[in-house]
Simulated assay, not measured.
Amino acid sequence: MSTSVFRRNSCRGGSCGARTSAEGNRRRSSSCFAPGAQAEDFSVSLNQPIVSIALRFFLAIDLWLSKRLGVCSCEEAAWGSIRPLVRLVEFSGHVAPWLFGAVYTLLRGETTEEQEIMLNLTLALLLDLMMVRLLKRLVRRRMPAQNRSDILSTFFVEKYSFPSGHATRAALCARFLMAQLVDTYSMRVLVLGWASLVSLSRLLLARHYVTDVCFGLAMGYCQYGLVEQLWVSWDCLQDVLLLKAVVQVRSMWTGL
C-alpha cells in the first residue's frame, strides 16, 4: 500500500513539474508580445469568394512564418542572446547613417565624378524614403505583435509595417553600389551579404512580416532603375543652378 501511495505521489509531482515548466515556457514565449496585442483573425467561411479564402490562407502562412523567424524579438526569445548584434546590423541599414554619409561625401568630395555619384545617392535615398512613407500610409498594415520598441524606435516612431524600409534601402543601395562604385567580385559578395543580413534582421527582430521584406526588396531593386533613368549629371546641375541665379539677378534688376 505504501508503494502505491508513493507511486501516486511521484506521478502527481511529475505532472505538476511538467505543468509548471509548460506554464513557464508559455509565459516566456508570450512575454515577447506587446501588451494588449491581439491575434489576427484568419477564419474563413465557405460562403466567401475563392479569392478571399486564398488571400486569408496566404496571410495566415505569412503570419506563421514571421512568428517562427522572430527568434530575436526580445531578450527572452530563443536567440535573444544575439539580439544586440542583430540590432547593430539593423542600424547599418537605417536611413540616418546612409543619408548623413552621402551628404558629407557630397560636400567633401574631391572630384566632380564622386560628387555626382553622391548627389544621386542622396536623391535616391530621399526618393526611397518618400515612397516607403507613402505606401505605409496607404496600406496601414500594423507591425507584428512581437515587435519590441527600442531606443532607436523611440526617436523614429514606426506604426506601419508594409513595406520594409530597411529592405527597400538595402536593395537600392546594394544595386547602386554595385553599379557605380564596386567593381570586384569580393566586394560584390560583401555588399550582397550585407543587404541580405539587413533584410533578415527585420524578420529576426520581428519588425516586419515576410511579405513586407520580400516586397521591399523587389521595390528597392526597381527603384534603382528609376534613379538610373532620372540620373542627374554634374553639368546639368550646374546649368540648373546657373539658370536659377540668372533668374534671381534678372528679377532683382527688374525690381530696381
Rank of each mutant, 00 (worst) to 15 (best):
D183H: 14
L152P: 00
L127C: 08
Y224Q: 12
L242M: 11
F215T: 15
A37G: 04
S201P: 02
S43W: 00
W64K: 13
N147Y: 12
D62R: 02
S201L: 05
S199V: 08
R56M: 08
L200V: 08
G165A: 10
V210M: 03
R140E: 07
D239Y: 10
V198A: 11
L204A: 15
S52C: 02
L99P: 02
V103F: 10
Q48Y: 03
Y209A: 09
R28A: 09
S164C: 11
V44W: 00
L217F: 01
L59S: 09
T112C: 02
L230S: 14
W64A: 15
G93A: 08
D62I: 04
F100Y: 13
L230V: 10
I151A: 14
T154C: 02
L129M: 03
V247M: 05
S52H: 04
V89L: 09
G13N: 13
L237G: 14
V139W: 06
W231T: 09
I61L: 14
Q115D: 02
L181T: 15
D128K: 00
N9K: 06
M130Y: 01
L241Y: 03
D212W: 07
L59E: 14
H94W: 02
H208I: 03
V103G: 01
L129S: 12
S164I: 09
F162M: 06
A54C: 09
F57M: 07
T168S: 15
F155I: 10
Q146V: 03
R133V: 00
G70L: 06
P163T: 15
Q180K: 15
S186H: 08
T3W: 07
T105P: 00
K244P: 01
Q248Y: 01
N47S: 13
A179P: 00
G14A: 15
A18C: 06
E113T: 15
G255S: 08
T111E: 05
M1T: 13
D212C: 09
L241C: 14
H166R: 11
L129F: 07
P49I: 07
F42L: 02
S10D: 14
R169N: 13
M143G: 00
Y224D: 09
L204Y: 12
E228C: 08
L204C: 12
R83E: 07
Q223C: 06
S81M: 00
Q238S: 12
